[in-house]
Amino acid sequence: MKDFINRIGLPRFIIIIFLIFLMALAIYLNIPLSDVITDILVRFGMNAILVLAMVPGIQAGIGMNFNLPLGIICGLIGALISIEFKLSGFTGLFVSILIALPLAAIGGYLYGKMLNSVKGQEMTVGNYVGYSIVSFMCIFWLLAPFKSPELIWAYGGNGLRVTVSLESSTSHVLNNFLAFKIGKVTVPTGLLLFFAIFAFLVWIYSQSNKGLSMIVAGSNAKFALSNGIDVDKQRIKGTVFSTVLAAIGIIVYSQSFGFLQLYNAPLYSAMPAAAAILIGGASLKRATIVHVLIGTILFQSLLVVALPVINVIAEGTMSEVIRVIVSNGIILYALTREGGSAA
């Protein structure tokens, strides 16, 4: 038993036990499992790319990229512009991504440069740089020269809406693509496929000579240096990939959610992604696709199952409380473990 716990790690063990307990409770309370499973699939698909964005950062040695909001904002800008031009469906989705990509690449590059001058403090700095960018963008959202009635307040207010509905543009384009039903469970095929593509890209890259240089630079900078690797360049590369994935991630997330959330919404977006990958078994120095898969499934299942169960037995906001405790708890656990030296 002790061996088993050691192998899968104490936090995962607790979360799995808790999840099993919630599942049992759900069945006992006659909550329809098909709805729960459908929800898990959707929430997995919509969050997984954001979690995936953590991988190149950790691999390149910048630790958890708490500056995910940077990429997210680039993604939001892409989506807003595509709506401004009244694009919808897959065109809208791909144009959003195409616009977001260069923005995220430039943003990631500059941010990577900055991280190279604050080695050892990446997470603390990243976190507050992220917050600063989000709050700065709040002013931008107020002043941005968008005209589409979808985007701005119908009357009265200034600037962009707090939430922009995607109903008439890209809402659910991926979720509905090739979606099918098994019994009462709906499988969002497009959404899962889309994630699979990016997961495959990240995986194949990590098998290539370029990717290996990056991973080696992240896991032991001195070793990398003595093997002729330009460590700073690799770190920038990881930061750029992470930022780009975050931009794509939020576009995918939003089409599934049905809304773009502006202003303060991206503020805490890095926390759940960081928590998910840590739950999956990643450390501050090592992360793989497997960690993304396991972590996202466990974390999202927990939230999905907890919601209806707690709605029956307690106050509705409890699901949110559990999210806060679990996600911050796991990050705290990772931070206080020996070894993960980057902060």
Binding site: V216, S219, N220, K222, F223, L225, S226, R286
Partner: peptide, 9 residues
């Protein structure tokens, strides 16, 4: 151990 090896690989 520091420069010569990737200890966890």
């Amino acid at each position: 151990r520091g420069v010569g090896l990737l200890l966890d690989d």
